[in-house]
Design a protein around this nucleic acid. Structure first.
Lengths: 107, 107
DNA sequence: TTGATATATGAACATATATTCATATAATAA
DNA sequence: TTATTATATGAATATATGTTCATATATCAA
């Protein structure tokens, strides 16, 4: 077939190295951190743990939006929350730290 | 103010280190690479340069979609195209290589 | 020329999802 | 208890954008 004659990667390793099953989860993570408001929250948590109201005081984001984002980030395993009396301290998980560390290199 | 009393990061370095002007461009890049079809194209180009029809033969993406994505990736400076007769060979730029290299660490 | 291949592009469509709104729960303070 | 603070959550809305469709240009082959 003509097309394959012109193709450089004759063994076509790509689809083996990066099948959909591997690409999709990563794309999901990237989509999660690609939203400015969520990225801001992650950068805040990289500095130190914060409760929702702390995040509010550092940003222009609404309480509701922050809660939603934190829920999403927890579901993805990037963030964990620990109850501290009236507050809930949110912090990066190991996975979250690793990812944010890689992201910061893009700045 | 109450909120600041509870806040761990008293100097509030975050907004200085990561102002919107720095966060937004990165978020834009991340959004670009967070789309599975675009991420697939980048991973293909990481392997070696490809023309549109090569990418088509490696994926299930339509010619039109590939062209649109490549245009977007070029606009962002991640990809460059070089005319080779009837074809156009697309490859990662330096910036593109750097970013894809960091992304691969997330796999 | 004519036909086929390779690619680009603007408009339309479809869909995902960020954000807000209204409201509920839980804990603390008075 | 009541009032206030901290947070969560489902539904509704708003919007961005991925994808397709129709079509145009350019190159090469016959």
């Amino acid at each position: 077939m003509f097309i394959y004659q012109r193709c450089d990667c004759k063994e076509c390793k790509i689809t083996k190295n990066f099948p959909d099953s591997r690409v999709m989860p990563v794309a999901g993570l990237l989509k999660l951190v690609s939203v400015p408001s969520r990225l801001n929250i992650l950068l805040l948590l990289k500095q130190s743990p914060h409760c929702v109201c702390d995040i509010q005081s550092h940003t222009k984001l609404s309480q509701t939006l922050i809660s939603h984002h934190l829920a999403d980030l927890m579901k993805a395993g990037l963030v964990a929350g620990e109850k501290a009396g009236k507050f809930i301290e949110y912090s990066l998980t190991g996975k979250g730290k690793k990812i944010v560390a890689n992201l910061v290199k893009l700045f």
